[in-house]
Design a protein around this nucleic acid. Structure first.
Lengths: 214, 214
DNA sequence: ACCCTCCTACGTACGCCGTACGTCGCAGGG
DNA sequence: CCCTGCGACGTACGGCGTACGTAGGAGGGT
């Protein structure tokens, strides 16, 4: 029992409670489902009450993005092989993307400045340092890796029809015979094995890093 | 002079004219600026007249996306070195992204099935064939490269504040001293030389491909 | 005990949005 | 000549973000 009367099941509105609700909604129906009215209704509050805790919808979405970012799981590997560390880190990022497919695009197109973002950067730099890269070069390597991760995960998570369904062949109304090389691998082009593709590209990146290894 | 009376400067509404207007608006103010009302106003037509030529806004945007995609410039290089071909192709894609920064995110998160898309795929496959990769492997290589391009261009074009402005340091409210490696390269982290980064990552990818060269 | 201040919740209203639906005028065929 | 069909358009509905004004209750000063 609380000191509040039983007849009032209403928790007081809080920025935290609001952001929580937004995160829930984003994870479950995507950013485009978030509306101030709906959020308020879900919290049992009036629409405009939200604005006492949040200046506008845009920063509310930002807050939600940071909250999601912050729950990125740290990964763990034994040993000192930088390749294993980079693999583990990359897989952790992929894990995050797959757990929050609808939020990922949002995170990806947003500049992150939060503490959570820096934790990730720091961990990545640590791995490149382990590989012998330092300073400017390490940052360049990290950014190339981030680019690959961002791209491959966008392809995996954001471009599938209806978000995550099996990819249908989108090749109905094009005359493929005009493109002989494409026609030769048309089956391959129409199917996606995301696990395999991710690991393939990851090894490609690592191979490139090894070539630059001091 | 036309056969239409002089008092009617109104061209008849056409799907083409509508898509044209949409493309113009997207290029100039981004997808989020597109609205049926505004489009109609810009064409000097009633809002609902658009629906005689286009079933709804979503497919109109799709049509605009394909139109933009279709204007991708073919590139030209002399010689047979697959590295040069891949560089040229990558730079052409970057060119497209930079010419249509606001449309790029839209294109990137859309499955393309158009003829224009296939032209690009075919050209890419040709380049990988030149490098000695065939079939399934070539598709894998191509997808890895696409991932890198997609990622790096998203970072270049879609995440800059207000789309394309100089990147501001987003590190005001974080205590960087808690992250020693990041602190060491904080200047590097806060600045972006997109030309250099793009080429750096591109060479990284090519180095990786060379390692797998048969 | 009283009042004054301030903070939060909330209702109303405005100007946008996409689009379902009904109407009207005109061109072309019988 | 009329009839038919199609394209243009107006109206209206339900949704959106949010500016603004108000009401009520909690806390402090007297």
């Amino acid at each position: 029992m609380r000191s509040t009367p039983v007849s009032s099941p209403r928790e007081p509105l809080t920025r935290d409670r609001i952001v929580d609700a937004a995160v829930r909604l984003i994870e479950c129906e995507g950013v485009e489902a978030v509306s101030m009215r709906r959020l308020a209704a879900e919290l049992g509050a009036g629409t405009m009450s939200l604005y006492n805790h949040v200046p506008n919808k845009a920063v509310l979405v930002d807050l939600a993005a940071e909250r999601i970012m912050a729950e990125a799981r740290p990964y763990h590997v034994d040993g000192d092989d930088w390749r294993e560390h980079i693999r583990a880190h990359a897989r952790a990022v992929r894990e995050l993307a797959r757990r929050h497919p609808r939020a990922f695009v949002m995170l990806a197109t947003r500049r992150l400045s939060s503490e959570a973002g820096f934790r990730t950067i720091e961990a990545a730099l640590m791995n490149f340092e382990r590989a012998g890269f330092r300073g400017k070069i390490a940052v360049g390597m990290m950014r190339a890796m981030v680019s690959y991760l961002l791209g491959t995960l966008m392809r995996e998570v954001a471009t599938s029809p209806e978000l995550g369904g099996i990819a249908l062949s989108p090749f109905e109304d094009v005359d493929v015979s005009a493109f002989p090389l494409s026609a030769e691998v048309i089956g391959e082009l129409g199917t996606y094995d995301h696990d395999h593709e991710f690991e393939f590209g990851l090894e490609l990146m690592i191979a490139a890093l090894e070539r630059y290894e001091p």
